[in-house]
Amino acid sequence: MTDRDIKKESLDQLSQIHNMMEQSSRFISLSGLSGVIAGLTALAGSFFAFINIKQAATIDNPSMVCLNMHTINQDVILNLMAAGAVMLVVAISFGILLTFKKAKKKNQNIWSSTSKRLLINLFIPLATGGIFTLILIKHQLFGLVAPVTLLFYGLALLNASKYTLHDIRYLGIFEIVLGLISSYFIGYGLLFWAAGFGVLHIVYGAVMYFKYDRA
């Protein structure tokens, strides 16, 4: 073997090792399109919430974006929570469906040790945030709902990023930053929420789609 052959062979081996380490420890079949759909769902949901709150707004509370949630009645809160639940179901269903399709194409098993690890590490911070949010609503601390959901979602993504496409880490960091800013500007929750769960998802999903899915 010549020097060149040895080098080439060594490079081959190293890249094979790298691929195997990546493939066996990360779940890489996450679909970019499902991110776009989740974003669109979030925007639609935010719009629905906006209309609901606007209708409920009284003369005491004329401002639409700067909500003073204390004046809002129980029905509206329930409406919003129901809308949130519907959005969650739609976004997750599409996420699973599209990821399933992509995994099939890539010949990766959707229910594997890597996907299980991804889900567990995603859901521990996410469920904590979810429960915390419900408690906030119970205590009528509505102004904190948007910042808290953004913060915990961002932290969940950051935690999950070790077990899937590395890019998701940046989405997590953006959500955290947005969550922190939104916790300062209480009352504008819906706007931040639409930006974080709507716009960021669409941008991220589109980037992922063009980076990984189309090839």
Partner: peptide, 26 residues
């Protein structure tokens, strides 16, 4: 061998792996 190289790569980044997962990856 390529298979052994792959096997060790997987076991370097995963603490414990079962037979089927190894088979699937390799």
């Amino acid at each position: 061998s390529r298979v052994r190289l792959g096997l060790m790569s997987i076991l370097m980044v995963n603490d414990s792996v079962d037979f089927n997962t190894l088979k699937e990856n390799l």
